[in-house]
Design a protein around this nucleic acid. Structure first.
Length: 487
RNA sequence: GGCGCGGUACACAAGUGGUAAGGGAGAGGUCUGCAAAACCUUUAUACGUCGGUUCGAUUCCGACCCGCGCCUCCA
C-alpha cells in the first residue's frame, strides 16, 4: 500500500442512528463492505447504477485513505417475487418465459450485462461476487438455526420468521407498527402469525411451473428473498462487519428483515454502519422496472452520451439527496466532463518536470479541502467544486494541476475510463499530414475541408503553436467504443 | 392513514446563525488564417409562503402550500 492520499478521518451517515458518525473499523486498517447487488432478470437501469456509483466512491475513498477493503456483493439470481399480479411469479422465471430461455441462462446473461455496465462506469469489481443460487446450502443452514432457536416457525412447509421474537424489529426503519396501513394489493398470507412476519423458505410455492427449486428439510422449494444477504454476508465477512449499503428503499423490508434474521441468529450486533443511497428520479417520479420506463446505459449511449458522463452527473449530487435526472443535466455533465477531458489532453503536452515548492504549498490547501469534503459523508459535489477551483487557479503550473487531478481521480474515477489507447487509421494520419501541408501554403480551403471531414469521423483537430494535435470527440459516438482517447 | 426527504439563479447543485461554492447554459471578450480547445468578464439584495426566536435567519422553531419517496417486488 502506498502512502494514503487522504488523512482526514472519515465520517458517514449511519441509517441506524440517523446521524453522521466518525468511522471506526472493527479491525484496524480494514473495511468489510457488503453492497446489495442486482437482481438479474433485466438490464440495470440508471437509477440502480447511481447507487453502485455511490458505493464505488465509498470504496475508493477507503482505499485512498489506506484501508484494505474487502468488498462483497451478491447477485440475486432467484427468489424475488413479482408483486403486481396477485399471483406473483419468480421474476427470473417471467423473464425466461419472455425470452424463451432457461432461468439460468437469463440470470447469467443479465449478470454479464450488469458487469459490462459497471465497467463502462468505471466501477471497481468487488473482490467477492456471490450468486444466491450457489449458496442455497448456507441459507438452509441459516434458516435451520433460526428454527432451532425458536425464532422461526413452519406452516405447510413454509418457514416464517417470527418478528415478535425480535423486540427491536421496528427500530431500524423507525416503524410505527400499530399505524401501518393494511396493504390491499397483495393477498395476505394467512399462514403468518403476525403481519410483519416474512418467509425464510418457500416449499408451498403458489407459482406454477417453478423451475428453480432445491431440496430442503421443509420440502422442495426456494429461499425467501432476504435470507441470501444474511447468509452470504456473514459467510464472507463474518458475523459482524463494518458497512452494509443499498438503496434507500431497502431500509424497510429488506434490511430490516436482514437485521432481524442475522441478529436473531448471532445474538449480537451484525453491522456497524448502514449507508443508503437516495433515488434517481425523473420528472414523473422514480423509475421502476415494472413501469417499463427505464433508462439504461444503452439508452444513454443511443442518445449520444458516454456512460462516464453519467458517472460525472452522479458525482454532482450528494448520495443522500435525490438526483433529478434529465437530459439537460446529463448534457451539463457531459460538457463539464469534456472540459476535464480536454485539460487532460492538454497536460499531456504541457505538463513537464517536477512540481515546485510553491505548487506544493498552494495545492496543499486544495488537497485538504478536497479530502475533507469526501471524508465528510462523501460530499462529492463539494469535492468537485474544489477540483474545479484548483484547476482554474493560475498560480498553479499545469504539472501541479495534472498531479492534483490524478490523485483525486483515485476516488472520482473519471479518467480511468478513458485510458484505452485509440489510434488513427493510416488514412486519417495521411489527411492530417496533408492538411499540415495545405496550411503551410495557406490553402485554407483545403485545410478546412480536411478538418470538417475528420470532425465527422469524431476526430477533432487542435492547431497548436507546436503543430496539430487531435482528440477523439466523445460526443455523438454511437455505439460507443470503450476506448475514448489517445491521451 | 403512518413514517421520511426535499423546495436555492435559465436549468442543475453545495452551503452557512452574520449576509449566497462549483459545473452547465446565455452574453461579451482574449487567443487563432478561420476554427477547436483554453482562459477572462458577466448573470440570485436572494435561498417555497406566512409567522416566531435573535442584534441579525436562507440557515433554528411553528404553521401552511407544493413536489417526491417508503409502508407491496424495487437501487
Amino acid at each position: 500500500m502506498t502512502t494514503p492520499k487522504n488523512t482526514s478521518e472519515i465520517h458517514l451517515f449511519n441509517t441506524q442512528t440517523r446521524t453522521v458518525e466518525p468511522f471506526k473499523p472493527i479491525k484496524d486498517g480494514e473495511v468489510g463492505l457488503y453492497t446489495c447487488g442486482p437482481t438479474v432478470y433485466h438490464y440495470a437501469h440508471i437509477g440502480n447504477l447511481r447507487t453502485y456509483v455511490f458505493e464505488d466512491v465509498l470504496r475508493r475513498l477507503f482505499e485512498a485513505s489506506g484501508y484494505k477493503v474487502n468488498h462483497v456483493m451478491n447477485i440475486t439470481d432467484v427468489g424475488h417475487l413479482e408483486s403486481d399480479a396477485d399471483e406473483g411469479e419468480d421474476k427470473i422465471m417471467l423473464a425466461a418465459q419472455r425470452e424463451k430461455k432457461s432461468p439460468w441462462e437469463i440470470a447469467r446473461f443479465f449478470e454479464n450485462a450488469f458487469f459490462e455496465d459497471c465497467q463502462a462506469l468505471n466501477l471497481k469489481r468487488p473482490q467477492t461476487v456471490c450468486r444466491a443460487t450457489e449458496h442455497i446450502a448456507e441459507m438452509i443452514e441459516f434458516v435451520k438455526e433460526l428454527e432451532n432457536k425458536g425464532i422461526a416457525y413452519v406452516v405447510d412447509g413454509n418457514v416464517y420468521y417470527d418478528t415478535t421474537k425480535f423486540p427491536t424489529y421496528a427500530d431500524f426503519a423507525r416503524l410505527d407498527l400499530a399505524h401501518m396501513q393494511e396493504h390491499g394489493r397483495v393477498e395476505q398470507d394467512h399462514r403468518k402469525r403476525n403481519p410483519q412476519d416474512f418467509v425464510l423458505w418457500f416449499s408451498q410455492s403458489k407459482y406454477p411451473n417453478q423451475i428453480m427449486k432445491w431440496e430442503s428439510p421443509w420440502g422442495i422449494g426456494f429461499p425467501g428473498w432476504h435470507i441470501e444477504c444474511s447468509a452470504m454476508a456473514s459467510k464472507y465477512l463474518g458475523s459482524q462487519f463494518d458497512i452494509h449499503c443499498g438503496g434507500i428503499d431497502h431500509i424497510f423490508v429488506h434490511h430490516t428483515n436482514e437485521i432481524a434474521q442475522s441478529e436473531g441468529k448471532f445474538g449480537h450486533k451484525w453491522v456497524n454502519y448502514w449507508l443508503h443511497g437516495e433515488f434517481l428520479v425523473l420528472d414523473q417520479g422514480k423509475m421502476s422496472k415494472s413501469k417499463g420506463d427505464t433508462l439504461t446505459v444503452s439508452t444513454l449511449k443511443e442518445a449520444g452520451y458516454d456512460p462516464i458522463h453519467f458517472r460525472y452527473l452522479c458525482l454532482t449530487t450528494h448520495y443522500r439527496g435525490q438526483l433529478r435526472f434529465s437530459y439537460e443535466s446529463l448534457e451539463a455533465a457531459r460538457n463539464a466532463y469534456e472540459t476535464l477531458h480536454n485539460k487532460l489532453d492538454d497536460w499531456a503536452t504541457s505538463a513537464a518536470g517536477a512540481v515546485s515548492e510553491a505548487d506544493i504549498r498552494i495545492a496543499a490547501d486544495y488537497r485538504t479541502q478536497f479530502w475533507g469534503a469526501l471524508s465528510d459523508d462523501l460530499n462529492t459535489p463539494v469535492a468537485l467544486s474544489v477540483l474545479w477551483t484548483c484547476l482554474r487557479d493560475d498560480r498553479l503550473s499545469d504539472t501541479a494541476k495534472q498531479d492534483f487531478f490524478t490523485s483525486t481521480d483515485a476516488v472520482l474515477g473519471l479518467a480511468g475510463a478513458v485510458g484505452t489507447e485509440l489510434t488513427l487509421t493510416p488514412q486519417q494520419q495521411k489527411l492530417i499530414e496533408e492538411r499540415e501541408a495545405a496550411r503551410a501554403r495557406k490553402d485554407w480551403k483545403r485545410a478546412d475541408e480536411i478538418r470538417t471531414a475528420l470532425d465527422e469521423q469524431g476526430i477533432v483537430l487542435k492547431d497548436r503553436p507546436t503543430g496539430t494535435d487531435w482528440i477523439v470527440k466523445k460526443l455523438k459516438l454511437s455505439p460507443n467504443p470503450s476506448g475514448l482517447t489517445h491521451s
